[in-house]
Design a protein around this nucleic acid. Structure first.
Length: 269
DNA sequence: AACGCGCCCTGTCCGC
DNA sequence: TGCGGACAGGGCGCGT
């Protein structure tokens, strides 16, 4: 469900809403959502102050002293600030906060994960993650070097979090359309000009989507329960059979690695 | 090591 | 109306 723009939107909201508050209680309703011991999770979070909330890849990081509460939303996870009496279908975890508000984690499919980890443990996992696509270190040259080492189809390659993080199924198709690159091409077939275009395509689509507070199809909501507005700006995703916005050729849907890919057969080479 | 696949789970939609 | 199958924004663990 949520890719970088959706997670970034939630993180920015949460910082304004609850950073500086203390967690008065952590109640796990669905134990299968918790990485590690549920006991340790609940006890370890009680009384901890939320110093700040940041994002790394598609993970939401609550900094509580030297530890981190790591939340990955999976496909249908939602993290929202509500009031104690508000209904919360598919409730997974409920955090009571020091100002009387409640932070709820809800998840229909329960592919999400919440975990309390030490900074050291998180550091080890963090090292396995690739470039933040909006960071200074992520350059067209870096993209070219990485791509040259893989023969996987470039669309599937883009979604691998070990190389570049934050790009999921929607924005992979969208970035490749903006770069005019055929999603079926092996990653190592990209030329330096291709890499430059793809680098720009990734950055453009992610930053535009952040400005619109993400893409909502069904389940995604921000920390206040609001929908994202980028769906109306998607150029290929979920537009199979509809005319390409550039050349009117019908957009094609294919399956790669078990996931839908959308592209324009005329514009993308 | 890199890669492809199945699987985790619930809900919705579409065709018969 | 009811039912079976396909599909949905992610990520892990398996076998090759």
């Amino acid at each position: 469900m949520p890719e970088l723009p959706e997670v970034e939107t939630i993180v920015r909201d949460l910082n304004g809403l609850i950073s500086g508050l203390t967690i008065s209680s952590a109640e796990v309703v669905r134990p299968d959502l918790i990485g590690g011991s549920v006991e340790v999770f609940q006890e370890g979070l009680r009384g901890r102050r939320i110093d700040s909330i940041t994002r790394r890849a598609k993970n939401i990081l609550f900094h509580v002293g030297d530890d981190l509460l790591i939340v990955n939303l999976g496909m249908t996870g939602r993290l929202m600030v509500t009031t104690p009496d508000e209904e919360a279908p598919h409730l997974g975890v409920r955090f009571g906060l020091s100002d009387g508000s409640v932070l709820v984690y809800r998840d229909i499919r329960r592919f999400g994960r919440l975990e309390l980890a030490s900074a050291v443990d998180w550091g080890k996992r963090e090292a396995q993650l690739g470039f933040e696509p909006l960071s200074e270190e992520f350059t067209p040259g870096a993209l070219f070097e990485l791509a040259s080492r893989s023969r996987v189809a470039v669309k599937t390659w883009l979604m691998d979090q070990k190389r570049i993080v934050g790009v999921g199924n929607i924005y992979a198709s969208e970035a490749l359309f903006r770069a005019r690159i055929d999603p079926r091409r092996p990653a190592n077939s990209l030329t330096r000009p291709d890499s430059r275009k793809l680098h720009a395509g990734i950055r453009d689509v992610l930053s535009s989507a952040i400005e619109m507070r993400g893409t909502t199809f069904m389940d995604y909501r921000d920390a206040k329960g609001e929908r994202g507005g980028f769906k109306d700006f998607l150029l290929v995703y979920d537009r199979g059979g509809l005319p390409c916005t550039v050349c009117k050729t019908p957009i094609v849907r294919i399956v790669q690695g078990g996931r839908s890919t959308f592209y324009c057969p005329k514009c993308q080479k």
